[in-house]
Amino acid sequence: MQDDGVPFDDRGLAYGDGVFETVLVRDGRPLLWDAHVARLRRGCERLGIPCPEHDLPAALPGRAGSGLAVLKLIVTRGSGGRGYLPPVEPQPRYRWRVTPFAPRETAWREGVTIRLCDLRLARQPALAGIKHLNRLENVMARREWDDPAIAEGVLLDTEGHVVETTSMNLFWHRAGRWETPALDACGVAGTLREGLRERLPIAVVTAGVDALMQADSLWVGNSVQGLWPVRRLLDARGVERQAWPVPSTSARILQDAAHELLGYPRLTD
């Protein structure tokens, strides 16, 4: 079926040549918007694509009214060039869609089960941190399970370092401090992760799976769903590697900060 809105020779379709953002919108207002725009600009600059204007949401057609919605914004290099060689003067193509959204509130309170993935992320510093369109590693990792009871899969890089999950960043509390994986070789630097690092002392570390085993609590989160506590960590065969109790009120400081940024309720009230 042909999509008349995206030409066959669009470089985003052909090569994943572009970037995207997924933004939580509350009552018509995009949240963490400055951080999303900054990451979009970093991605465009890294790839050499002219970036859209900062005030783009004001021109979005069909933008959400009251309630929660998700805005997905895609920027491709457009058409042109010869094979992999991009055009000298790209004419970017922008696509966006706003859809209603409801978060998984039970996951906030009760926590989730996650697993380790077999797939290993390639280390490519030139693409690290940005949200580029070529997400085949994440797609392949997500194909590893179809059990709805498993919420996410943990991704390591080819050197065995913990990086992220298939669609969320990782955080844990260990030896009296908050930690999150370094993302200088691969992975997506989430806007919620950035906002939390501005508010709380979160150490950026290079660590293996053993760090998760040593953690008092483990969390996964992004700028759409908020922060979920992890109750069980399974290996790729489904065998439990570690389990954690429901976090106490004092252990939810990171979640409270995340939900304040996104307008979600504090669970310590």
Rank of each mutant, 00 (worst) to 15 (best):
L13R: 14
A14Y: 01
E21P: 06
T22R: 01
L24G: 04
V25S: 00
G28S: 10
G28M: 11
P30V: 05
D34G: 00
V37A: 12
L40E: 10
G48C: 08
G48F: 12
G48H: 11
P52I: 14
P52G: 10
H54I: 14
H54C: 02
H54T: 13
P57G: 03
P57L: 08
A58V: 12
P61Y: 09
G62Y: 12
G62I: 00
G65W: 10
A69Y: 08
V70I: 15
L73K: 09
G80V: 13
G81R: 05
G83H: 06
L85H: 12
P90R: 07
P90F: 11
P92H: 09
P92R: 04
R95A: 13
R95E: 14
R97M: 07
R104V: 05
T113V: 15
R123L: 07
L127A: 07
L127T: 13
A128D: 08
G129Q: 08
L133Q: 13
N138Q: 15
E144G: 01
I150H: 00
V154K: 02
D157L: 03
E159A: 14
E164N: 09
H173K: 07
R174W: 02
A175S: 14
W178R: 04
P181H: 04
L183W: 08
L183V: 11
G190I: 13
E194V: 02
L196Q: 07
L200E: 10
M213S: 11
Q214T: 01
W219P: 02
V220I: 15
G221R: 00
S223T: 01
D235K: 05
A243P: 00
W244Y: 15
P245A: 09
T249R: 13
A251R: 13
R252I: 06
L261V: 04
P265K: 04
T268Q: 14
